[in-house]
Write a protein that binds this DNA or RNA. Structure first.
Lengths: 251, 251
DNA sequence: CGTGTTATTGATAGATTTCAATCAATGTGG
DNA sequence: CCACATTGATTGAAATCTATCAATAACACG
């Protein structure tokens, strides 16, 4: 619950290279994918590349929502605060994540980099222009927003009705499914290595628990041989299906 | 937690009157508002009016998402279930609410009428056609989806970090703000009459609590002269500001 | 190596749930 | 019209899960 990140200046790599979008590794995973290759220079012209160091907040809840963002590298945590400092992490934004959808003149959440993060920044006006030029982009954003809503509803179910054990299991499964891009992973009960760029405190605030409960529950999973914990940033899923059953409340 | 609503046939008032949209009282509150009056016949041609009786489920979680809905009268509850019957109400859909945004080939939630509900039903294909004909509609849907996301994040904060007391207070304030359409309401601490079409069980499942806790907390509010409870379906907000402070955790 | 941060583990406390009983409102049928 | 059943809401007592408080351990880093 100790955030306290002072506003440090962001590093802006404003090299308006017209090829940045063409060579962007995140393109296949983000909304930009719907823009035709030939038009990528227009997209690049509207975007500004920004680097954010770990721990730095690049979106502040309540600030006027002047920009939209597309994460191209790294992971950020999105969160809301209560006046007394209680925190709810509403999600983790990784590569390809489009930020700013939840907009109503001012940001409804804050965003802080967990790892070195690279983002493409669009001004409100520039994005509006892009949406007018590329109707497919608007359709894509609606699709993305709809999916976000499904995820949000799933999280409400988790926060409102699942036990600590079920919450942690759900979290691990969701994290394991985050990287479906490696083809070699098919069999049942194949060990999966889950990378966790966030602290236990972030996980706790995401799952509506305390860090102690997170720690205890993970220790119990380990004692039950469901997982291994090689280090704080990594968890190996030994029994995917068993954990999945816990996640869905089937145990 | 006792749902058990058998699938009864819906009443379809399929009077494809080309004026239904023109005379629709919900128009000002719904996405249809962006459609030009002259084009309302096209909208009407794509929609089917459906009446749903209280207690009847008209969207079933997991079913193929063939239709989109627009609520024109009444209130429905939206919810998700865990295999063992635990339920999370993700929202209440009143007049003007657009249903189906959270779409991914199959419905992510169920919807059940609390009062007699009237809805406009669109097939997937028909809506796609409308979106192509009226780009403004797509923009509107994106706006609606974005607002839904803001609401969902607020609910995550509630479910993950607020106390029972704060949850009930938040719920009452949100319900009170639902009807901002009556101009005579301006002063501070003016008694507001809140209509609750849902049961205590629905409220509990919405707030991640039990009906006993809901009942106890409301009773305490009454003992503190913050509210009055004339009957099960109505609550009078005696001290709006005090309740609002509780809702935001300022007490 | 200290040193500070982060995570783990233990003991206790507390808020909410669970179990249980009562009450109120509504409807039914003899 | 009045027992009787049914459903929803309230209230009480006990149990439980998770939070809180506290101490230790593991780790990263200068």
């Amino acid at each position: 619950m100790t955030a306290m990140t002072r506003a440090r200046p962001l590093v802006i790599d404003s090299h308006r290279d017209s090829n940045v979008c063409l060579t962007c590794g995140a393109r296949a995973f983000s909304v930009c994918h719907v823009i035709d290759t030939a038009d990528l220079d227009k997209l690049a012209a509207a975007a500004v590349s920004v680097s954010v160091q770990p721990g730095h907040t690049f979106i502040q809840e309540g600030d006027p929502a002047e920009h939209f963002f597309n994460v191209t590298a790294g992971t950020a945590k999105l969160y809301k605060l209560l006046p007394d400092g209680r925190r709810q992490v509403t999600g983790f934004a990784g590569m390809g994540y489009f930020l700013g959808l939840a907009v109503s003149s001012s940001y409804a959440f804050s965003a802080e980099a967990l790892e070195p993060v690279k983002i493409c920044r669009f001004s409100r006006a520039k994005l509006r222009g892009l949406l007018d030029d590329f109707p497919a982009l608007e359709k894509k954003l609606l699709e993305v927003a709809s999916n976000e809503l499904v995820v949000a509803q799933e999280q409400m179910l988790l926060l409102g009705r699942k036990t600590a054990r079920e919450r942690l299991a759900s979290f691990l499964i969701a994290r394991a499914n985050l990287v479906p891009h490696c083809p070699g992973r098919g069999g049942v009960n194949v060990a999966e290595r889950i990378h966790l760029p966030m602290t236990r405190s972030d996980i706790a605030d995401y799952l509506g628990l305390t860090i102690e409960t997170v720690s205890r529950t993970l220790s119990k999973f380990r004692a039950e041989k469901l997982i291994e914990i090689p280090n704080n940033a990594e968890i190996v899923l030994l029994k995917h299906d068993a954990v999945e059953d816990i996640a869905t409340g089937m145990v």
